[in-house]
Structures are given as C-alpha cells and as structure tokens.
Design a protein around this nucleic acid. Structure first.
Length: 244
RNA sequence: CGAUGACCACGUC
C-alpha cells in the first residue's frame, strides 16, 4: 500500500495489474474491506475489473461472512460481461451453507445448471457437506448419486463427508459400504477418512478394526493428533481406560 | 492464481 501511494504521488498511474495485485493480496489476508475500497477506486478511474479480481473479492467476502455483498458483486460483474464460472458458484454455495441459507444454496446450484455452468466436484461437495451438516443425509446421498450420473467422479472428500455423517448418525453399515466402495474404486484413503472410520469402529466396539486403521505401514497414512484424540476418546467412552 | 472433507478454533444465541 505504501508503494502504491508513493507511485501515485510520483505521478505514475496504476493500471489493472497494479490493482489486481493489491486487491488479491488484501483478499488473501482477509482484508475484504480494503479490497473493496481498491475496487471502488479502480472503477472510479475507469478501469474495468477482470474475472480474477472478482473471483478474489467474491471469495474474500464469502469467507468473511458477507455473502450478500458477494452476491452483489456476482450479479453486477455480469454487466462487465464477466460470466460466473463453477469456481465462483462453488464459493458462494459453500458460503450460503455456512450462513444457513439453504434456499440460496439450492437456488444457485440450480441456477448454474440452467446457465450451463457444470458443477464441479467442489460444487457437489459443498452441497453434500451442507446437507449432511443439517442432518439431511438422504438428500446428501441423492446429490452424491446425481454427481455420478452426470459423470463427476466423487473424490476422497465427497466420501469422507458422507462417511462421517453416516457414522455420526449411527448408520455404520452405510458408512462401511462407502468405505468399501472407495477401495473398490481405487480412491486414496487418507488420515481424515481413517480417523472417521476409527470413530465408527470404536463406537461399535470393534476394537480390532480400530487398531487396524492405525497400522501406518499397512494403510499408508500417518495418524495425526486428531486421530489419537479419537482413539483415546473412543476407548474411554467404550470404558476401556487401559487401551485408551 | 484461487473454492470443497474429520477434532478444535471461528461465528450465532
């Protein structure tokens, strides 16, 4: 910012790259307020925004809990002939779920399809996460089915999210079905999924399974602090203080 | 360039 002021003082005129760079930096460090100010300044000197600038601002505002403002940028940018892409839609959809705006999430999810912007894995994952955190595992599973129908391959995160919710809902059979499906499809199981599976195993008192998921060499994923927290807590809850 | 999954944190009351 200091250099920016200095260059203006020295008579140099900032161009779109100058603004882009600064706006992106402010967005990255969570200063969407500063980013917006620069956006206004940029518009005032007659520089049209780029897709990249808007993408940064929409994301920063979404993360700052200012989804409504993000939506305004999203709508207004179309006047500058910048069309939203799957990335921007995903960012907004995720933010809607975080802000408890289920209706908006669905609206934008449907809207993007109507406008022929194909939802990406992240878009579907945002929907799955949002629905499952509301306890709507049935709907989440429908979205999971839909993505496969349209040829978007679920990734580790898609499975992880559903497995976690099924376990928390006590639907261990469903969770394990997905676990087996991951193996079948050759998906990489990572520490997050294993930690979830350990939680499920311990809840069902399948101590041997839980131990098996900690076998580093066999499964190729290093347990982390969250994993061990689960192991300890799960065993305590199961009444096995020694094992814990 | 950049978005999405477990615990915690954050946020709301």
């Amino acid at each position: 910012r200091m250099i920016f002021l200095e260059m203006k003082k020295g008579g140099l005129v900032p161009d779109v790259h100058t603004f882009s760079c600064l706006i992106e930096c402010f967005c990255k460090v969570g200063r969407s307020d500063e980013a917006c100010k620069l956006y206004v300044e940029m518009s005032e000197v007659g520089i049209r925004p780029t897709r990249r600038i808007l993408s940064s601002i929409i994301e920063a505002l979404s993360n700052a809990g200012q989804v409504d403002l993000a939506v305004r940028f999203f709508n207004e940018m179309q006047g500058d002939r910048i069309n939203p892409d799957a990335y921007m839609y995903s960012t907004l959809i995720y933010a809607f779920w975080s802000a408890d705006q289920e209706g908006q999430a669905w609206k934008f999810f449907n809207q993007m399809k109507e406008h022929n912007v194909s939802p990406s894995v992240a878009t579907y994952n945002a929907m799955i996460k949002g629905l499952s955190s509301l306890g709507q595992t049935g709907k989440a599973f429908k979205v999971f089915a839909e993505m496969q129908e349209v040829g978007v391959i679920p990734d580790t995160q898609s499975y992880s999210c559903l497995i976690d919710r099924f376990i928390k809902a006590g639907k261990l059979v469903d969770a394990w079905k997905l676990y087996l499906q991951m193996i079948e499809k050759g998906l990489q199981l990572d520490v997050v999924v294993y930690t979830e599976l350990i939680n499920g195993s311990l809840e069902a008192q399948w101590t041997d399974d839980a131990k098996q998921f900690l076998e580093v060499k066999k499964i190729g994923a290093l347990p982390n602090v969250v994993t061990y927290q689960s192991v300890v807590e799960g065993n305590v809850k199961a009444g096995d203080i020694i094992e814990a």
